[in-house]
Design a protein around this nucleic acid. Sequence first.
RNA 1: GGAGGAGUGGCCGAGUGGUUGAAGGCGCUGCUCUCGAAAAGCAGUAUGCGGGAAACCGUAUCGCGAGUUCGAAUCUCGCCUCCUCCGCCA
Length: 432
Amino acid sequence: MLDIRFIRENPNLVEEKSAQKGYKVDIKHLLDIDEKRRELLAEIESIRARRNDLATRTKGGKPTEQEIIEGKALRDKLSQLEREMDPLQLDFDSHLKAVPNMPADDVPVGGSEADNVVSKEWGEKPQFDFEPKTHWEIAESRNLIDKQRAAKVAGSRFAYIFGDLVKLQFALIQFALDILTNEETLKKIIQDFELENVSPKPFMPTLPPAMAKTSVYEATGRLNKEEQTYKLEDDDLWLNASAEHTLAPMFMGEVLNANDLPGRYVGYTTAFRREAGTYGKDTEGILRLHQFDKLEMESFSLPEDGMNEHLFMIAIQEYFMRQLGIPYHVLNKCTADIGFPNARGVDIEAWMPGQNTYRETHTADFISDFQAEGTKTRVKTDNGTVFVHNNDATVFAAGRTLIAIIENYQTKDGKIDIPKVLQPYMRGQTSI
RNA sequence: GGAGGAGUGGCCGAGUGGUUGAAGGCGCUGCUCUCGAAAAGCAGUAUGCGGGAAACCGUAUCGCGAGUUCGAAUCUCGCCUCCUCCGCCA
């Protein structure tokens, strides 16, 4: 959530930027409650002060009859005021939580994803001397994917993935982990992308829990919307839709050492998504499933490093795409598309020759301190204890990256060449 | 799933109704001593919220939430987490 002090000082700005993200917030009402709340709080605290004073006065001995009567009166008054405070506080909290994070200054203002800005293009689209096929035409005919039988077992939007395609997924993951844990390679990425003030500290490989309790799910700011998330009602657990959902709250309630930052983690987990409201969309192939595996970065940093971590993660994503030789473009997402907790957001879309279009394979989210206010994750600095900045970004969404490889590396005889960098992770195999 | 035990500051640990926001120790910071370091001595050392230009004042926090009481770290109830033993299990 946003700091109420910031809202007090910049009411118009907050209202304007919220509107740019597509959220209508009643700042005047919020500040109104805020003031009432603080007035009442002052009153409550003065009564508590008298109660404490009385307790100190009578401590050691028995209070007199008169003092007990006085104490009872204070107690009754206090509980009456506290009852008045309850609804006020609830009202205040719900209005405060409804205020989205402020977009960074360079986020393009726009009303829908149509206003996203292509900020970079890379790679030569492959030319084929045949009609390129879609990934599902190739994979289904080769028995690398079977959705029919998966539907029988689990319903629509599930798939069996078989054989060499499975090996390719694990090659991809291994390759990525090797890069992300190698300080020298990270240094090179920082250099190649001309980044400044970025630490080359390696990422900690992590297998996180794939579920979170409701209290945690809420503390992270409901990163994934409720209707998009699977819930295990009997156990009060939510299935994560990405590793960042269980990486971000890792240090909930803790005060970290500035020396330990940036804290960088790369988590591998299965992601579960209900895909509500996508009926009839992307029904072919494995682009949009209820379940897929994903490697995801998460970082906790000092406020002044937050934006640089974001840019670093984007550079890493681009580096991986270039290593795989997959043409892509970078989308600077507009205010309406970056998401409620985001200060900035970037998508990378890979060229998919079979579908003759770009499709999203990566996201990078700069959350600033919006999430840390909910998870109460702070860091001790020379200027006091402040909320950390959170960044998260996709390394590889396994399914979609496999799609990009299949479609870009398809051959005339219906096979798939393996990108050079992955071949060592496939025991030298050059095609599947 | 059954039976027991435990959660106190950065860490260890004392504390079962009233000078306890919390003893003592460790750690950390500053000073003294020293050529310097170590040792020793002295002093300081949690966070949120509200008010204040600031100094500072008030308030809350002893796993979390509710309750009892004039007064709760301490008593009661619910929940969470961890540990030990038994059972089950990849």
